[in-house]
Design a protein around this nucleic acid. Structure first.
Lengths: 185, 185
DNA sequence: TAAATAAGTTTCGAGTCGATACTATTGTTA
DNA sequence: TAACAATAGTATCGACTCGAAACTTATTTA
């Protein structure tokens, strides 16, 4: 069997299993993806547009998914004060609790049951593959705030940290979250 | 950011990108999955039931997917002679040609552009993860025929190889294919 | 200020997917 | 061997997915 075909097979089979596990707790895979994102994204990144870009979907699809999550009581929408076109998304308490019971927990368990160096190798491999694909597609990486070139640690006045791009203060917790503007140093 | 969440994020994001690429050439991801499988499966494994088990879907869903592929002219169904309940699936010439232009080719290119040892590490990692998950879910591995405990190489009389489970001769090409009965040695 | 752009929503059509019910055929068992 | 169970698939339902395209408001830009 030739190597190329093997890689594609592996990738598609794993994706399928991931997708399959995404049917849990009455949600669909896409809804879990949105919930997971909203639980991890910082306040600059919790909008339908950011979610659209993160998930690589179209605006219409995201709109539908958010509508479902809102109807189920996991998400609330509020209008942005500065830009009246924009919508700010927030998880409800129920949404936050559900996000903790992630549908992909079984997969997490699989990993945890493997030897420690396998765990590390697998995570590293997935990271490399994801970044290469994102770069190739020209998509934003959506990395962690405090790994960004605009992150300024320990700003003396006020909040502990600072975003030099958005000119906004950052809390300790906030700087651990996913940001749509994150760019490698 | 805690490690567990990171792994789940990586996994779900990659799955999503894979799924996204699966919308190509007028087919859907599930249809590509079926096409890819049929292009690789040996004759004992080209049935709706085997495909159902391989893809971890329900019989109804597979029935629908196959109906689409049949209507598009990529698959033909024939009734099994021995068991009149069973259906044998075969790719048409168009189906075989399409399978060569796999929708996940872009992903393959991503991998090929990485350093050789990264390619190997990533493939190995995916293999480990997939096998661990399949084992945990109690699913069949659907491995390659000639890596099976029932594979007998170079049977003297007639065809070059032999399956000791199904008591059937195996060609060289056939023994390179995916089999539903494959079991680790 | 008019035109372009951007953020979201709405609608459409084909497909997905789990669940359930159903048909036909084959195996088992009493 | 007749009755029952198991197996291979199909059909239908409802909620959802997803790309595409049309459409509404806002906000920029020229």
């Amino acid at each position: 069997m030739n190597k190329p075909r093997q890689f594609i097979s592996l990738l598609s089979r794993i994706s399928r299993l991931v997708n399959h596990d995404g049917h849990a707790e009455g949600l669909k895979p896409a809804q879990w993806d949105a919930l997971r994102y909203l639980a991890q994204a910082n306040r600059f990144s919790r909008s339908p547009g950011a979610l659209t870009s993160y998930l690589g979907a179209t605006k219409g699809t995201i709109s539908q998914t958010l509508m479902s999550l809102e109807k189920k009581g996991f998400v609330v929408k509020t209008q942005d004060l500065h830009d009246k076109r924009s919508v700010a998304l927030e998880l409800t308490t129920a949404g936050k609790n559900l996000a903790k019971e992630d549908a992909l927990q079984p997969f997490q368990k699989i990993l945890s049951d493997l030897p420690a160096n396998d765990q590390k190798d697998i995570t590293t491999a997935l990271e490399k593959l994801l970044l290469a694909k994102l770069r190739s597609d020209g998509n934003k990486p959506f990395g962690i705030c405090n790994t960004c070139r605009h992150f300024r640690k320990n700003n003396p006045s006020g909040s502990p940290h600072f975003c030099d791009l958005l000119k906004e203060p950052l809390s300790d917790a906030g700087s651990e979250k996913i940001c749509i503007e994150q760019a490698a140093i």
